[in-house]
Amino acid sequence: MSDEIEWIDEEAGPVVRPYAMTGGRTRPSSTAFDLLSMVVATGATISPRANLGSQHRRLLGVVGRARPIVEIASEVELPVGVIRVLLGDLLDQGLILVRQPVTAASSPAQSLLQEVINGLRAL
């Protein structure tokens, strides 16, 4: 028997536990993150003092356009909890903006929309 470590799956690569990516943190520094919150990069320059890892930088590449948190988690194949913690770090650095989803109460009333449609048809 050889002393070499054998991978069962060649594509598995090195395994990093999610808590290692977040430094053991399980909660984001901000409560601004809803599953449907839209996140977008600000385009700000990353400070040399910013303690950002490769996953942070990967997320900045993903949020070049506004996307919901669940979509981001799906694309980078990480748990939503980990994504929230990492995005909290980016928010603290001013590198992303977070917008809450539009609630049904803040959308226009159906009667108003119907009046707009009727007005457009009248043109």
Results as ranks from 00 to 15, higher is better:
S2N: 11
E4M: 12
D9E: 07
E10H: 10
E11Q: 11
G13D: 00
V16G: 03
R17C: 06
R17Q: 11
P18L: 05
Y19F: 14
G23K: 01
T26C: 08
R27K: 14
S29N: 11
S29Y: 07
A32M: 11
F33G: 00
L36M: 12
V40W: 05
G43T: 01
A44F: 02
T45D: 08
S47E: 06
S47Y: 00
N51L: 11
G53A: 02
Q55E: 15
R58W: 06
R58E: 15
R58C: 10
L59M: 05
G61P: 04
P68Y: 04
E71K: 11
E71M: 12
I72G: 01
S74P: 01
E77F: 04
E77N: 11
L78P: 00
L78K: 11
V80I: 13
I83Y: 02
L87M: 04
G88T: 03
G88F: 04
D89L: 05
D92W: 05
Q93M: 03
G94I: 05
I96R: 00
L97Q: 10
V98L: 07
P101S: 07
A104M: 13
A105W: 04
A105V: 10
S106P: 00
S111K: 08
E115S: 14
R121L: 15
A122Q: 09
L123C: 12
L123S: 15
L123P: 04
L123W: 12
